[in-house]
């Protein structure tokens, strides 16, 4: 028997694409749409939703319902959202400040060393985030690698309480996602014609001016890509706040997860998820716009 591919190119196309597309559509697009619908339904206190229409979930984002049903402005959730955005922004900024010089350093190395350094940057990205976050407990925690010597030398006599706060979460975010800052920046730095750097040098630009006026503008697409990747991933990060923040300092994703576990408020969880997706979509849109604008820099 001879197996034949369908002759009709359209049939063949759909045959080839459908497993991937249908899987993603059914188990990702549809569920997200469903969650969007859920956010406009009344909550069922055993989890799930009830029939009908309700704006409660969205109202709950901003207001608290008083006993007599009047709405009082309540910023507790906004605070968590704000903290998520701020932590993500700070994490992104720190990643950039730390990562850019590293990318610049790697680009200047001879090719073989470059490859090895890039591999070293890449490896953590592909290793378990949980483990990576956990390893910081050994460093920052009570009796950890930082406190132990300080205690032994008598420089401090009590725990520094570095864990379970915004600082620890920030460290975790930078640690988790900095490879995604360095790699795109490296990729666009690598494309820069080094002749331009020498030309600027020749025209009386010192090192700082070269970086500021030539290198940075030319690798802007990479910087934007890196910043948005790190920001978006930090914003939705679950592991750092739950492991290093000890679950006390919540971020958006902990709040979402909480709604689907202990709190059993699916509509509110749905609304929060939609909000997160909107923030991410906004970030991606900004990225696409910015990269179009700088397209002329590509050779």
């Amino acid at each position: 028997m001879e197996i034949k591919l369908p002759a009709n190119p359209i049939t063949r196309r759909w045959l080839g694409l459908s497993p991937a597309l249908i899987t993603i559509f059914i188990f990702m697009v549809l569920p997200i749409a469903l969650l969007g619908v859920y956010s406009f339904k009344p909550a069922d206190s055993y989890g799930g939703v009830e029939a009908g229409f309700s704006l409660d979930a969205w109202i709950q984002l901003f207001f608290d319902r008083d006993l007599d049903d009047t709405l009082i402005f309540d910023s507790i959730y906004l605070q968590i959202i704000w903290r998520s955005v701020m932590l993500a922004a700070i994490g992104t900024t720190l990643s950039f400040l730390v990562g850019f010089p590293v990318a610049w350093y790697i680009v200047q190395q001879p090719p073989e060393r470059r490859d090895i350094l890039l591999l070293l940057v890449t490896i953590p990205f592909w290793t378990n985030l949980l483990i990576r976050a956990y390893s910081w407990i050994l460093i920052l925690g009570k009796n950890g690698m930082i406190e132990q010597p300080l205690l032994a030398m008598g420089l401090i006599d009590d725990s520094l309480e570095m864990m379970y706060g915004n600082m620890a979460i920030g460290v975790g975010l930078v640690y988790s996602y900095i490879p995604l800052m360095i790699l795109p920046i490296y990729a666009s730095l690598e494309k820069i014609d080094f002749g331009l750097v020498e030309a600027a040098h020749d025209l009386y630009a010192d090192r700082w001016a070269v970086i500021q006026r030539i290198v940075m503008p030319l690798c802007l697409p990479g910087i934007i890509a890196g910043c948005i990747l790190v920001f978006v991933l930090s914003l939705g990060d679950f592991i750092s706040p739950s492991i290093l923040g000890g679950g006390k300092k919540m971020m958006l994703s902990n709040l979402i997860q909480f709604q689907f576990s202990s709190a059993r408020n699916w509509p509110f969880g749905g609304a929060l998820t939609m909000l997160l997706l909107m923030l991410v979509a906004f970030g991606s849109y900004f990225y696409i716009k910015a990269s179009r604008k700088s397209a002329y820099l590509e050779k």
Partner: peptide
């Protein structure tokens, strides 16, 4: 002296005009 401290300028073969 670094290149930026020398009162000498270069015309590069590939021009090296700053594209941005």
């Amino acid at each position: 002296l670094d290149p930026n401290d020398r009162p000498v300028n270069t015309v590069f073969q590939s021009y090296s005009l700053f594209p941005h």
